[in-house]
Structure formats: structure tokens, C-alpha cells
């Protein structure tokens, strides 16, 4: 299990690159890398050469998150001004502009079935679910407020929802918040199930294993990556090694490894069977905001790819094998 650097694009954006995701391959083209940046643009890159395919403008303030529909046809991007723009990947035609004030938008994720877009609702302490056919808001999943007297200002901002993740079967939704709590929802019943405790600092990224539907990986500012059994509420493992905040985590398509990006400027590859970092890539010169494994499908199915984006304005592509 190892990573090998393939290509890096310096100054891929005019400013910090904050988000990255892969648009799955369609029948007519192979997978594309989608990146969002503080420079208010969203860019599409062809793999493996990382040739800039298109630059989408239209966002104000920085682009904080991007997500791609499993079909590979549409994608969504969200910016700090709380707009979500849904667009056609190949034509850049705007399909919808979503907003649900006063809720901010943070991370976005399409469910594996492609029917729903989950949006981390920031200060509203909830997840918003949008129907991908009608682009209507279909549900708001609120995080239950802690019991006790009137919630204070502080606890409100602590519950700020940063990240969302769908389980591989699409039945569960997990979200991470500023105070480190992770909340698990039953999507079908739109019901909060339970919290997962262990982090006490912001959880900026989380992802379910594609193999084990119960297994959840969480990345937190406390420099740790936790492995939870999200159903059994148990902490399976805690992995330390990053020297600063862990900003993003993604799991490999085979479910055997995870990659993390951190403020310590490194990308690490963790072998899940050893529960230890097996490789550290330090080609970035600033915080690594996003890591993303390329989903299987299209041409070059067997070759694994990992992309990372950083505050240093660059994008890197690695071979994962």
C-alpha cells in the first residue's frame, strides 16, 4: 500500500484551494477533479494530466465545499456567502441555486443513490436535505440541543455543523460539528439516533467506509483521526500522528486505507489493518484542505488515484496502489 506522486499543478487557483472532489466518469468522458477556492472559482481538471478543463465563476466569497452527483453529470458547490450552486458538469449550466437562510452552508454530499443532497447547515445546527429532482428542501435534521437551561450563545455556535457523510447504503447520515460531537441520523425516518463522543474540537471531515457500512472515520482539529462503529456507538480506534489539525479524510475505494490532509502541510496514508500511518507526503507548502480518492469506474478502473488540494494554491495527484 503506497502513494506515488504523479503530478502537481502549482497556482492551480489564484488563491487557497479549499475543496476537492472527484466527478465520477460518465460514458463519454473519464473522471474529473473538481476544486473550489478562495478565489471564488470552481475548476474542473482532467485526470491524469490535470489539464484545466473549465473555470466556473459565479460565487461570491470563497468556495468552501464541492460535491459531485454519483452519476457524474451534475455537481454542486457552496461558498461562504451561503449559496449552493448546482450545475451541469459538462456545460456549466446552472441547474439550481439553493439557499436556506439563516442557515449557512458548509460541506455538501450527494447520497450514493443520487436522490438527495445533504448540506451541513452551519449555525442552524442541522443538516438540510434537498431533493435532487425538484431541488426542493425536503427535510431539516436538527441536532438536539443539550439539555439544561436556556442554551447560551456559546453552545449555539459550538454546535455549528461543519461536515456531513452518507453511509455506503445511504441509510445513515453523520455530521460533525465545531464542538467535536458527531451526530448520527436515520435518514429514512429523518430521526436523530445518537452522538459519538471522543472529539472535543471541530470535526471538519468525516467519511463512511465503502465496505463496512457501520465504520465511520472522523478527522478533527485535535490532531486525531477516530474510527467509530457508528451503530454500536463505540470508538474502535484513535490514530495520532499529525502535527496539527486534521482537515480532511477520505477512505480508499477498497476500504483498506484512509488518506488525511492536515494543517501540518502533509498528506498521510493510513493502513487500517495496522492502524498506523504508512506514508507521509509533504509536497504541499501550506495546509492541506482536501483529499479525495477517485471513485472506481470509467477508463483506468484499476488504478487508484488520490488528489489533494492546499492553501498553497496547488493541486497534487498521486497514484494509490
Amino acid at each position: 500500500m503506497k502513494l506515488a506522486g504523479l503530478k502537481s499543478v502549482e497556482n492551480a487557483h489564484d488563491d487557497s484551494v479549499w475543496a476537492a472532489t472527484w466527478v465520477p466518469a460518465t460514458e463519454t468522458r473519464s473522471a474529473l477533479l473538481l476544486t473550489g477556492s478562495l478565489d471564488e472559482t470552481v475548476r474542473l481538471w482532467s485526470s491524469d494530466e490535470l489539464v484545466l478543463e473549465r473555470t466556473n465563476t459565479g460565487h461570491c466569497l470563497g468556495v468552501a465545499s464541492v460535491a459531485a452527483h454519483p452519476s457524474g453529470l451534475i455537481a454542486a458547490s457552496a461558498s461562504l456567502d451561503s449559496f449552493v450552486r448546482v450545475f451541469d458538469v459538462d456545460t456549466n449550466a446552472t441547474i439550481a441555486t439553493l439557499e436556506a437562510p439563516p442557515s449557512e452552508v458548509w460541506q455538501l454530499r450527494f447520497n450514493p443513490q443520487g436522490s438527495t443532497l445533504a448540506v451541513a447547515g452551519g449555525g442552524s445546527a442541522s443538516i438540510k436535505l434537498w431533493d435532487t429532482a425538484t431541488w426542493d428542501l425536503i427535510a431539516t435534521l436538527p441536532i438536539p440541543r443539550p439539555e439544561g437551561p436556556k442554551p447560551s450563545d456559546k453552545s449555539g455556535s459550538k454546535k455549528f455543523v461543519l461536515s456531513v457523510a452518507w453511509s455506503s447504503d445511504g441509510k445513515r447520515l453523520a455530521c460533525g460539528s465545531m464542538d467535536g460531537t458527531i451526530s448520527i441520523f436515520d435518514v429514512a425516518r429523518a430521526k436523530f439516533l445518537h452522538h459519538l463522543e471522543g472529539h472535543f474540537m471541530p470535526v471538519r471531515s468525516l467519511v463512511y467506509s465503502p465496505i463496512e457500512p457501520r465504520l465511520l472515520f472522523t478527522a478533527s482539529d485535535d490532531m486525531h483521526v477516530h474510527m467509530y462503529d457508528a451503530e454500536g456507538k463505540s470508538l474502535v480506534g484513535a490514530m495520532s500522528g499529525h502535527e496539527s489539525w486534521v482537515l480532511s479524510v477520505d477512505v480508499s475505494p477498497d476500504g483498506a486505507a484512509i488518506a488525511t490532509g492536515s494543517s501540518d502541510r502533509t498528506v498521510r496514508l493510513w493502513d487500517l489493518s495496522m492502524r498506523a500511518a504508512v506514508q507521509t507526503m509533504s509536497n504541499h507548502t501550506d495546509q492541506v484542505w482536501g483529499v479525495a480518492f477517485r471513485p472506481p469506474g470509467g477508463s483506468g478502473v484499476r488504478t487508484g488515484r488520490l488528489a489533494s488540494v492546499s492553501d498553497d494554491k496547488s493541486i497534487s495527484l498521486y497514484d494509490y496502489s
Binding site: C60, S82, P101, P102, G123, P151, D153, G156, S157
Partner: peptide
């Protein structure tokens, strides 16, 4: 454009103030 953004930000804050998020 900036002014519009500012208005948007402020109105967001204004709306959110109902939720006692901030002071």
C-alpha cells in the same frame, strides 16, 4: 458586488440573531 455581499452577510447575521448565535 461587494456591497451586495455585505448586505447579504448582514442580513444573514440579522436573521441568525434570532437564534442567539452571536452577540
Amino acid at each position: 458586488a461587494e456591497l451586495e455581499n455585505a448586505v447579504r452577510l448582514f442580513s444573514h447575521l440579522s436573521a441568525a440573531s434570532n437564534l442567539h448565535f452571536h452577540g
